[in-house]
Amino acid sequence: MSASSDFTHYPLAAPPPAASRPFAGKLDEIRAQHTAFWAQPAAAGDARAFLRGDAAHAYATRSAVAPPGAAAGAAGPHALPGWVRAWTPFTGFAGPVLAEDEQVVIVGNRSSFDAAQYGGAAGGGGRAGMSALHLLGLPKANLYNGVSLTPRTARVVDAVAALFRARWRDSAAFREAVFAHQLAAVDRREREAAAANRPDAAERADDARVRWGELLPALDALDADNDFTFGLHLWPDHSVAHLHVHILAAGEEARQYSTRVHDRKTKDAFEVRDYVLNEVAERPELYEPAEQE
């Protein structure tokens, strides 16, 4: 994927109501993680190289500056978990796309919504989805992570929200594609578990399908503006080093069978956006000269 990194033309989207923002209230953590990223000597150079798609760039792997979570007093150089790299599974994404515009795409999360298919909370359930409806919004431009956002790029959150809300509200075909993807994830997990010789793979998948059928009428009735939340996993708490906005059905009913393992680290995407727009200075050195004109 290759597209402009300038998102400033997207109108500011209204956040969902407080009841649908379970990850809000973490401004201090957002500020600390953003500041820690830019304190790394390689941050600007590596983020710029990734944005340009520079596979020949020597991306940092270790740093004299300890990242968040490093053992207190540990001698450097320190490993940089989840740091910027030349390629990720979301870079140049070529998989099935549920919706797109000029600058963002919406894709499905590959995991089943049902944590029981992974053994439940005590047995690897963290690999499950975070909600019965769990999608991902990806920028086509190579944006690294929420911590690397600047005022020029912060409205990627608005771009994702606007595209998702419009499709959910207006397109029955989009909804059907989302539902089909979520159910296919149950089937995929059944095949994975069977291949790993788990004797209960079919039983757990059948249970998940029953739960899905029971949830479906309520899921189909969800309101685009009020019933979905948008989350970000900030460095170093993320899984893929290409920015992706988690789009989740937010209510307790929709999340009752899904993992909560990631709730602590998930930040409200609108809270991240507002922090960047209100407190972060622009970094023109990140962008191509042609894009600055």
Rank of each mutant, 00 (worst) to 15 (best):
Y144E: 02
Y144V: 10
Y144G: 09
Y144P: 03
N145Q: 02
N145W: 03
G146E: 12
G146Y: 11
V147C: 11
V147Y: 10
V147F: 11
V147Q: 03
V147H: 11
S148T: 12
S148M: 11
S148F: 04
S148G: 12
L149W: 12
L149K: 09
L149P: 00
L149A: 07
L149H: 11
T150S: 07
T150W: 02
T150V: 10
P151D: 12
R152G: 03
R152H: 07
T153R: 10
T153I: 14
T153A: 10
T153F: 13
A154T: 11
A154K: 10
R155Y: 09
R155A: 04
R155F: 13
R155N: 08
V156Q: 04
V156N: 06
V156K: 07
V156P: 02
V156A: 04
V157W: 08
V157F: 05
V157N: 02
V157T: 06
D158F: 13
D158Y: 13
A159N: 14
A159G: 13
A159C: 14
A159M: 14
A159R: 15
A159P: 13
V160T: 14
A161G: 06
A161N: 04
A161C: 09
A161K: 01
A161W: 11
A162E: 07
A162I: 13
A162N: 11
A162P: 05
A162F: 08
F164N: 11
R165F: 09
R165W: 09
R165T: 05
A166N: 13
R167S: 10
R167L: 02
R167K: 15
R167E: 15
R167D: 02
W168H: 11
W168C: 08
W168Y: 04
W168D: 03
R169T: 15
R169E: 13
R169H: 07
R169D: 12
R169G: 01
D170F: 00
D170N: 12
D170L: 04
D170I: 00
S171A: 08
S171E: 15
S171P: 06
S171V: 01
S171L: 02
A172T: 12
A172W: 06
A173S: 15
A173R: 15
A173G: 14
A173V: 14
A173I: 08
F174I: 01
F174P: 02
F174G: 01
F174L: 07
F174S: 00
F174Q: 06
R175C: 01
R175N: 04
E176L: 13
E176V: 05
E176K: 10
A177P: 06
A177T: 07
A177Y: 05
V178D: 14
V178C: 14
F179Y: 15
A180T: 14
A180P: 03
A180R: 15
H181L: 10
H181A: 05
Q182W: 10
Q182R: 15
Q182I: 09
